[in-house]
């Protein structure tokens, strides 16, 4: 036992030495990489938006992978180091990136320019739990500002300003042009969303959901968010009325037959709800806190918003 431990420790030391050697060799050959100006962005939604603004003027590094959870993704040591070498760090903030915020703080303390977008675009407070908000965060600022495209337009202006101010070597005109072009696309998005949602009768603009991210969208486009507990896999196999009570109560209150939730068995959930409520029930999935990989439905912010708008409109109009 002891010998084995010692042996493996020796092996580790050797490996470390080899790695250090390799690293030293690699370092001398590739110094150009450090010369490129670099913007580091935490979430992939902000990453896409920032990339639209920065274009080819600087490197944009996105820390959160596609299909990840902004609350739980963590950084490797090298990513943390990257943050501290960035010309600008763009992050969502308001507590969203729980495992990353301390690294952002460290970068700021070491002199890196940082932009907390969520805080800068006029945050809303979470709804009370009874009104569909999360259990323990009522009254806290809600970090999910991106569900309101107008706030994203505001964010675009702020990010462009920060890039121009803090990232050396970028062409200001190119950045401003990129930002203006993207702003137009966002204006189109907002107009299109309004037009889509107009098809939903006002009293049926209700999102029965277990997501906590649509508060901004609800406020911007006149929806009610009604929180509900979605029955899990084991309860769905053989549910009783009490297993479904939170959800059926929310649906009756909202006067809708559509649930916006992630479920591993959406068909089964719809089926048991129909037995309980009568009529046809739809279970619709939405994109919430992460982009997908390219071409998988929500590869960009604009795609994500359009996909959700279509899903909500179709879900609530029975299209």
């Amino acid at each position: 036992m002891t010998t084995r431990t010692r042996g493996s420790r020796r092996l580790r030391t050797l490996l470390l030495a080899l790695l250090t050697l390799a690293l030293a060799g690699a370092g001398t050959g590739c110094t150009s990489s450090d010369d490129r100006p670099r913007v580091v962005v935490t979430t992939n939604i902000l990453g896409d938006i920032t990339q639209e603004i920065v274009g080819d003027e600087a490197d944009v590094t996105v820390l959160m992978k596609p299909n990840a959870d902004p609350h739980s993704f963590g950084l490797s040591a090298v990513q943390a180091a990257e943050l501290e070498r960035a010309d600008l760090v763009v992050f969502n903030g308001l507590g969203l990136e729980e495992n990353v915020l301390r690294h952002v703080d460290a970068a700021r303390e070491s002199g890196v320019a940082t932009l907390e977008v969520g805080k800068a675009v006029g945050p809303l407070a979470f709804q009370a739990h009874d009104d569909g908000g999360p259990e323990e965060e009522a009254g806290q600022p809600d970090p999910h500002f991106w569900t309101d495209p107008d706030r994203v337009r505001k964010a675009v202006g702020l990010i462009a300003d920060q890039v121009v101010e803090n990232v050396d070597g970028v062409d200001e005109k190119a950045i401003r042009d990129n930002a203006d072009r993207y702003d137009e696309q966002l204006a189109d998005l907002t107009a299109w969303m309004e037009k889509s949602f107009d098809r939903i009768p006002e009293k049926e603009r209700a999102l029965v959901t277990n997501h906590h991210v649509f508060g901004y969208l609800a406020e911007r486009f006149g929806f009610r968010v009604i929180g509900a507990v979605i029955p899990s896999g084991t309860t769905l196999a053989s549910p009783s009325s009490s297993d479904l009570r939170s959800l059926t109560r929310a649906m009756r209150e909202a006067g809708v037959h559509t649930v916006f939730a992630d479920s591993s068995q959406p068909k089964r959930l719809a089926e048991v709800l129909r037995t309980e409520m009568g009529g046809r029930v739809r279970v619709v999935e939405l994109y919430s806190e992460s982009l997908t990989e390219k071409g998988k439905g929500a590869g960009t912010y604009l795609q994500m918003m359009r996909a959700n708008t279509t899903a909500m409109t179709d879900g609530l109009t029975g299209a």
């Binding site: 470390l16 390799a22 690293l23 050959g29 990489s33 450090d34 490197d59 040591a77 090298v78 180091a81």
Partner: peptide, 14 residues
């Protein structure tokens, strides 16, 4: 080790 490996991969990043 991760620092070393990752620096290795990112040092040519540009």
């Amino acid at each position: 080790a991760l620092v070393a490996v990752s620096l290795l991969t990112t040092s040519c990043a540009g």
